[in-house]
Design a protein around this nucleic acid. Sequence first.
RNA 1: UGGCCCGUCGUCUAAUGGCAGGACACCGGUCUUUGGAACCGGCGGUGGUGGUUCGAAUCCACCCGGGCCAACCA
Length: 797
Amino acid sequence: MTDSAARLANDFIRQIIRRDLAQGKNEGRVITRFPPEPNGFLHIGHAKSIVLNFGIAREFAAADGVRETRCHLRFDDTNPSTEDLRYVEAIQEDVQWLGYDWGEHLYFASDYFEEMYSFAQELIRKGLAYVDSQSEKEIRERRGTVTEPGIPSPHRGRSVEANLDLFRRMRAGEFAEGEHVLRAKIDMASPNMLMRDPLLYRIRHVEHYRTGDEWCIYPLYDFAHPLGDALEGITHSLCTLEFENNREVYDWLVENTSVPYRPHQYEFARLNLDFTIMSKRKLLRLVKEGDVEGWDDPRMPTIAGLRRRGITPQAIRTFCEMIGVARSDSRVDMGKLEYAVRDDLNQKAPRVLCVLDPLKVVITDWPQGKTDELEAPHYPHDVPLEGSRILPFSRELYIDRDDFAEDPPKGFRRLVLGGEVRLRYGYIIRCQEVVKDAQGRITELRCTHDPGSRGGSAPDGRKVKGTIHWVSAAHALPCRVRLYDRLFTVPDPDAAAAGRGEDGDIRDFLNPESLEVKEGALVEPSVADDPPDTRYQFERVGYFWRDPVESEGDALVFNRIETLRDTWAKVGTKLAAGGVEREGRDAPARRKGRDGSEDGAAGEPHAGEPGAPPELPPEVKARATELESQFQLERVDAEILARDAEVERFFRVAVEEWPDGALPLANWIINELPPLQGDRPLEALPFGPGELAELVELVEEGTISSSGGRQALEVLARDGGEPGAIVERLDLAQISDPTVLRPIVLDVVEAHPDKVKAYMTGKKGLMGFFMGQVMRETRGKANPEVAKGLLSEVLDG
RNA sequence: UGGCCCGUCGUCUAAUGGCAGGACACCGGUCUUUGGAACCGGCGGUGGUGGUUCGAAUCCACCCGGGCCAACCA
């Protein structure tokens, strides 16, 4: 597998969509949405969501059984005090720049205010919402805590008429902010805090950037979001993990209002990237406090920042596909983004020469005033693009200061006194003399050249290890180069700040060296003719492009998009670590690895001790003891059965049906039933203890295999029925006859000669593979002992 | 602490009861007029303990660790 990106993504969300499609849900529609709040700029975490949502719409358009796919852009603008048109515009620009198109499906939650108002009235009429007139503080205090239930509002019992009237007057502007709110009437004792009568509407006498002063009541997220989704016919509403608890409210709302569609919410892990932050609020603060130059500062993780830095939309999309989509909290290594950026630019960036820190080189045997025009290709041999430019070569040149060493570290392949080096596309030169100023600083190198090496190849075929970049002093263009590094000094600034307690501040972990400006850099003259948005590789240095903001007019200001991989810098770091006083080029500039992670974990707590059994209510314990002695069950099993009276009853009735089957019945009830049960109560199952007993007995007596038993149980749990009949209908009778099984076993073995060889040479784990094949062939009907015996007979000789 | 969710190489992510695989990173090598790219090879993982099963990363129980929830934010 050389191209992982080519492999179609199959994350859990796409699996759900495929499943829904296969089951004919939503009439073959796959409709997603990206729902930003216009209260800040989008960042790379949003890019993950954009690529997911728009990517799904694009991808599934061609899938089987699909009638329609699309992805909406919906502004979730229900909070007038933080939102602004300027953000709406910036967000649209960012989404488009990333390469996505919402077509005509641009929506605003604020466009639904009237409809939402009607849904609120509907809830009131159904007795499912009420106007609460407690103060904000009272509401908060009476919500209870995670361990204690809340206290119902004294206004919870208001009549439908009173609620309707009050709500109408809220809208009419008769009340001040905070005087009343509209609340859903759900459950003040719910273990899910969000279900404790969530607020639906609040009064805000604030002008909304779109609806002006048309409204003075505004819906809250929990109310507006599901309704917006439903109104737009969203089928799969994808959001991040922190909204997990909100799903219960979401479902409650779409089930209790007469919305046209029934959308479903699925949550995935938001993106966390090392050495940066993703909170819009915190990013806004960096902007406001001047820590960065704006939302589009190239150090920012914002789309605008990445764009200004020079990163391409393709690189961001690739990155998003590389990191995948899952449900576990994660933190992605910067290296992954860097890889995506380099991989993209390597394929398209023309190569040019630029000297960041110039050191003068005089070619003493080069005639004064003579200029040689060298043709240099824009791309290396392995990039399939054409193009070249002219590189002027003259007596006075500049090279980068760290491409010369008076006292070279081991392995140094660049210029040294008395040594040779190749000037890229130019000549091989030899350093004859080092000129220093009064302070001992090197000011000039005096070199001679090999006239026969024009273009860089030695006429006599001698090996010149080093090749360095250079510019001609008389022709080079002065420029400013901005080198960016990570914004923070620690991988997880939020955690680091939190680790400092109350007054922890992420700004304490800002990297003071996140921007280094090279004022006196010199770039080859050819760049003057290029389009201003050209992304270059400055050979041996990194990828750069002209800063679109600072490069007004002729000013040449370059941003470093990304460094090149630099194995020499790594050697330098290692040498330094080994106590050798040497530094590779740039070595200290980039901190690799997870330094700064502070507090080394001392004294890991030990996991896995058996641990005291959970403290059960005495009554449960007593019933467990009873079960334990009555049926000779293991204590743990007895307790599991006793924990739920309904489960215990189920078990007891089943045992009545089959008195000898207590143990297997307990096993099946404990281990096999729960996953099939889902969230249905036992009583809601389409079968009872009698059927289970019958089924388990069929397994125990060998009529069907345990695998067959599980298959039958699946059917039983789904459709109900009579076990014997199911076994009959599905043809699940166990195959224990060796004469029947043997040919199947032989077939399986013959079909996999390579596996057999591997097995013979010791890979015994393959027995599971062969068993699996036999089971597959027999649809789980093979008697495992017999099959295994046969297999072992064949394979082990 | 109540509820919900999540634990797979250093990192991200597959395997949906049947061979623990890929990517990034790292290490070594080949090649090289970029210490780039490419290519080849290597290192390295199912949090723990029990149980169910012929077979468990996957199902069950407990433990450990992590996340989210007590805004009139989203």
